[in-house]
């Protein structure tokens, strides 16, 4: 039993895609958390629900419509937020509820397709196809390369917008780029943990890693390690015990956070 599960090809696909998504969510999420945009992933995920419903209604592969709707609504809400000076948390609330509302209306109009919707709400990593795995790897690769190339500019404009502007960094373009990449990351990750739990992967490993009080690269590496650990162990445990992978992954991430809090409050985690 123990090693046998590693020989199944569906398990290979699940683990490979899971690790890619773990890295992607942790890196993109770190910038969102540091920008006080932690719930943005959640909002995009909810708006993707509208996109998924649209795809199912139109008979198009739902993730494609989800990409379109999520990226568009993320960019639009960012524009509206800047133009009308709406606070970050309020704009997230607007985005979040409008996505769900659109989804519900479309589902109502179509007479309901509950089974398909269910797998998008809670993820279905063990059912992932070869094509999806390739797509996940390709998107992860592209986004990580973009972040590596623009690493200094993205970090600087996250740290202090005004100073970054004076240093000649196109801060507004960088902001839109981050929102765009967050949109892609969310939809790509839906298959792993589903719409409802996506922000857990964005936020929890990063909040945990930040508690170790290290520099930026080390914090990113700690976050990625925790994220990969939660996803890999979560997928394996969920298969062995026949429980939902999404819930198991998120609970593992939360227990790493709780453990870190415990170590920190016991004084074992010294700075530097």
């Amino acid at each position: 039993m123990s090693l046998e599960i590693l020989t199944f090809s569906f398990m290979h696909r699940a683990l490979i895609s899971g690790i890619a998504i773990a890295i992607l969510c942790s890196v993109v999420g770190l910038f969102l958390v540091l920008r006080r945009y932690s719930l943005f992933g959640d909002a995009i995920a909810h708006s993707s629900f509208g996109g998924i419903a649209l795809g199912l209604l139109a008979g198009v592969y739902p993730l494609w419509t989800a990409y379109g709707v999520s990226i568009a609504s993320a960019l639009i809400i960012t524009k509206i937020k800047d133009r009308y000076n709406i606070s970050g948390d309020a704009s997230i609330a607007v985005l979040l509820s409008s996505g769900i509302a659109v989804g519900l209306v479309i589902i109502g109009l179509s007479g309901g397709f509950t089974i398909d919707i269910f797998s998008f709400l809670f993820g279905s990593i063990l059912l992932i196809s070869v094509d999806d795995t390739v797509l996940i790897l390709a998107l992860t690769g592209v986004i990580l390369i973009v972040i590596l190339i623009l690493y200094r500019q993205i970090l600087y404009s996250t740290f202090n917008e005004e100073q970054a502007k004076v240093s000649g960094i196109p801060v507004e373009k960088i902001n839109y780029l981050i929102v765009f990449m967050a949109g892609i990351t969310v939809v790509t990750s839906i298959q792993l943990v589903g719409v409802l739990l996506i922000s857990a992967l964005f936020v929890i490993p990063n909040v945990t890693a930040i508690m170790y009080g290290k520099g930026f690269k080390q914090t990113a590496i700690i976050s990625m390690s925790f994220s990969i650990f939660s996803v890999v162990v979560g997928i394996l445990l969920s298969y062995i015990f026949d429980i939902t992978p999404a819930g198991t992954i998120v609970l593992l991430a939360i227990s790493l956070l709780a453990g870190t809090m415990g170590i920190k409050s016991s004084g074992l985690l010294s700075k530097n």
């Binding site: 200094r152 290290k214 520099g215 930026f216």
Partner: peptide, 17 residues
């Protein structure tokens, strides 16, 4: 300079920006 108190950057990271 405004930044989060627990923003995970070292002195070197900041100067590098």
């Amino acid at each position: 300079p405004i930044f989060e108190k627990n923003f995970p950057v070292t002195v070197t990271d900041v100067v590098r920006m």
